[in-house]
């Protein structure tokens, strides 16, 4: 009868029991994480984790909330430009900061199209960067996954997306990740062995299960965006509805122009594979050239050729592949001032 305390009066989908810690410092957090090893899971806004826990996709025994750690909630502008965002800064706070939108339009764009307003007031930038990969076979209830036969990512031996293979093809579904890579962001982690920094591009791995180059006991503390330095950026997102939906294609583009020619370019595709994908073939087509329609088109086709989305997200995968080209063109045209034609 001691369980009676759990609830009284309702009927709904619930979280499995867990122990909860809310450390007030990074040291304390690291200690708790190392004490509990693989049973522990870091949580910030919870908007990605809790639904997955309710569906028993992730079943941590211990939750370590990073909300009370002061370092994680700072926004610090460097004197010579560039900004450092604490991983626990909410998406709503990023959006409220006009200076960020001016310096890093792609970031503001991406944050503005994540889910919907309540999720944005709960979810954090760090949480978005660490968001679990998604798959139509994986993001389902326990009942559903059991009926299907569990998949490789949780409890099973095969990946139903590509049953012949040995890997998981769950999709990187962060809007922030491709943008951070395009902006050249650097991530600061702290773990039992000390601090380290890692380029956003290196933070992701092409594996639906081990999708982050971050040990479970490491904490993502902050993200540093380099000085604006002439870079212009934007983000285009494909999804069925104007709100709520995760990206099934994200195109982050940053370019730096010099006397009418593209000096540098970064094109990063999100939600078409297990990690965000930087398309250097396309960047090479742009660099050194005027962004004339044929150049843009060439880059867009290179993007489309370089990606191989699979049939495990909304929209047909071939459609997503084709849209990658369309969205890249639109993003580049948006950044080309004045627009060609």
């Amino acid at each position: 009868m001691s369980r009676r305390v759990l609830h009284d009066g309702g009927a709904m989908l619930r979280l499995p029991p867990f122990r909860y810690f809310a450390p007030r410092s990074l040291d304390e957090a690291l200690r708790i994480l190392s004490d509990h090893g693989s049973e522990a899971q870091i949580v910030a806004g919870g908007t990605d984790l809790y639904p997955k826990m309710k569906r028993r996709q992730i079943e941590p025994r211990v939750l370590v909330s990073v909300r009370r750690i002061p370092e994680l909630s700072r926004i610090v502008w460097a004197t010579h430009g560039g900004v450092t965002l604490g991983a626990g800064v909410t998406l709503a706070r990023v959006l409220a900061c006009e200076d960020l939108a001016i310096a890093y339009p792609a970031l503001a764009r991406a944050c503005a199209v994540i889910a919907h307003p309540p999720i944005r007031s709960m979810g954090t930038i760090g949480g978005n960067l660490c968001i679990d990969t998604r798959c139509t076979y994986y993001d389902q209830t326990f009942f559903w996954r059991e009926a299907l036969g569990f998949c490789l990512k949780k409890g099973g031996a095969i990946c139903p997306v590509a049953p012949g293979g040995t890997r998981c093809w769950a999709v990187s579904s962060s809007d922030g990740a491709p943008v951070m890579i395009a902006l050249g962001a650097v991530l600061h982690l702290i773990g039992p062995h000390g601090e380290r920094t890692i380029a956003a591009e290196e933070f992701y791995r092409d594996d639906g299960i081990q999708y982050l180059a971050k040990a479970p006991e490491e904490v993502l503390v902050e993200v540093t965006l380099p000085r604006e330095d002439g870079w212009k950026s934007t983000y285009w997102k494909l999804r069925r509805r104007g709100a709520i939906d995760f990206p099934v294609l994200g195109v982050a583009v940053a370019v730096r122009m010099e006397s009418g020619r593209c000096r540098d370019a970064r094109i990063v595709l999100g939600a078409v594979g297990s990690c965000p994908k930087r398309i250097r073939e396309a960047e090479n087509i742009l660099e050194g050239n005027r962004l004339e329609p044929d150049v843009i088109e060439g880059a867009a086709h290179a993007v489309s050729r370089a990606i191989r989305p699979l049939d495990n997200a909304d929209f047909l995968h071939l459609y997503r592949k084709r849209m990658a080209s369309v969205f890249t063109q639109r993003a580049l045209r948006e950044l080309t001032d004045p627009p060609p034609r």
Partner: peptide, 23 residues
Amino acid sequence: FRSRLGLHKAPSMLDYKSPTPLE
């Protein structure tokens, strides 16, 4: 539905697409 098993492909309010105010 998934063709072989007859599983509903999208039994959730995220995956079943109901238009929002923006549509």
